[in-house]
């Protein structure tokens, strides 16, 4: 392999330990014979070393938690959260472990059944469209919360 090909590997997979053993061997043998690629490798490692320094834990100032606490305590629960809180108390309260999979499916079923019935009530706590979009990007479990908005004018067919 040419130096340029070796360097392309050094820049990512090699330094990140993402290279399978059979692909690593030829790079290692090139490195042992090529001082200039060895120098390039130390330059790559130097870049990462500079950034690793900043992994030292830094905490946000205390007022950040204070703001969060005030906002979560002041915010009325959404219907989805009320269902969740109720579900937590009634069903899982005494269970030693939290079975996510069955919990999620049960929550979807509950929301499908319960939300259209209750959603015509007060709108407090229901997400804005912007928030739904941002969460859909954030989490593949967005379906659960997209369903929570069914009563808010979106049809299930559109979401599925």
């Amino acid at each position: 392999m040419k130096c340029a090909d070796i360097r392309a590997i050094l820049l990512a997979d090699f330094v990140d330990d993402e290279l399978p053993a059979h692909k690593k061997a030829p790079v290692d043998s090139h490195l042992s014979a090529c001082p200039s690629c060895r120098e390039f490798l130390s330059a790559v490692r130097a870049v990462d070393a500079e950034l690793a320094v900043s992994a030292v834990p830094v905490l946000p100032p205390p007022e950040v938690w204070e703001n969060i606490r005030q906002q979560i305590e002041a915010r009325p629960l959404s219907i989805g959260e009320k269902v969740t809180a109720w579900w937590e108390d009634v069903v899982w309260g005494s269970r030693p472990t939290f079975v996510y999979g069955s919990f999620a499916s049960a929550l979807i079923v509950l929301l499908v059944v319960a939300v259209p019935l209750v959603a015509r009530g007060p709108q407090a706590g229901i997400m804005s469209d912007k928030e739904v979009l941002s969460i859909a990007y954030v989490d593949e479990g967005a379906l659960v919360f997209s369903l929570a908005n069914v009563g808010n004018g979106t049809s299930v067919e559109n979401l599925l």
């Binding site: 997400m127 954030v138 989490d139």
Partner: peptide, 17 residues
Amino acid sequence: QQVFLSAHRHLGSFAGR
């Protein structure tokens, strides 16, 4: 602040995925 407010509101959708 946004991350934790959002996490608080949507913790249910996380559901161990």
